[in-house]
């Protein structure tokens, strides 16, 4: 049976990298006594996969991992058992049973929604609702990003699904492509806004929270973003 587990990651957990979070969960699952399935072979390991790696320094309310279990009682039992093993900064939010034919978490990821706040003393004075609307209203947004092979320049617009500024909260909300094929880092989009307004960009100014990770419940042509747990169901 495949489960999709949603969790949040805050506070000092921002400084724990993706691979270490995986190692952390492998141990937590053992401590919680969850009847997880193991691969066969000489060095069996837990059947577990994560949706989308979260960069160092980012917080999240919408992380997902898939695990396979041999038996289970109920969603609340599972959540409570695992939460009893969590350290400060990481909470299990939901656990949903997946249909047998579900694609794994990583392959399912289509998009992610981020909230970008600004560190004290680094608030951009130029940012307003109008400035951001103007930015998002462009027909193409040419950006340059660093890759392993060097720099590439491309049009970000097709990968940027929503972009809005909240004047009252002084926060940006972004929905960007987070699939393995077209993943956009939120800071790249924010940098493009700064660049368009000739403002000096500093990565450190941003306090980024991933709010949700989405799959595409619609079609290629008419996408419909739903949280990654959408295809699962509560159990027990």
């Amino acid at each position: 049976m495949k489960l999709r587990v949603k969790f949040s990651k805050h506070g000092v957990l921002r400084f724990i990298g993706h691979l270490d979070v995986m190692r952390y969960f492998q141990k937590a699952i053992r401590r919680a006594g969850i009847d997880i399935a193991y691969t066969t072979g000489f060095s069996p390991h837990q059947v577990m996969s994560f949706a989308a790696p979260l960069g160092l320094g980012l917080e999240s309310n919408g992380e997902y991992m898939d695990i396979e279990v041999n038996s289970l009682t109920s969603s609340p039992d599972f959540i409570n058992a695992l939460n009893a093993q969590m350290v400060d900064g990481i909470r299990i939010l939901e656990a949903r049973l997946l249909p047998d034919n579900a694609k794994n978490a990583m392959a399912s990821v289509a998009a992610a929604r981020y909230t970008v706040a600004f560190r004290k003393g680094y608030e951009p004075v130029f940012l307003t609702e109008a400035v951001v609307d103007d930015f998002f209203g462009q027909s193409e947004i040419i950006v340059t990003k660093q890759t392993k092979k060097g720099e590439t320049t491309f049009d970000m617009k097709p990968f940027l699904f929503a972009c809005a500024f909240d004047d009252a909260q002084n926060t940006l909300t972004l929905i960007v492509d987070a699939s393995s094929a077209g993943n956009i880092k939120p800071s790249l989009a924010v940098k493009a806004i700064y660049d368009r307004n000739h403002a000096e960009f500093n990565d450190y100014a941003l306090l980024i929270t991933r709010e949700e990770t989405y799959l595409n419940a619609g079609t290629q042509e008419v996408p419909r973003l739903e949280p990654l747990g959408f295809i699962g169901s509560d159990f027990g």
């Binding site: 506070g11 000092v12 957990l13 400084f15 724990i16 990298g17 270490d20 952390y24 141990k27 937590a28 401590r31 160092l56 320094g57 093993q85 350290v87 400060d88 900064g89 560190r119 450190y204």
Partner: peptide, 26 residues
Amino acid sequence: MRTLALSDDILLKVEKPARYIGNEVN
């Protein structure tokens, strides 16, 4: 939540910040 001795900019700059934040299981 505990306040860390090191600011975010330091922790994001140094190698393996997990060395300095505590909060481990047990």
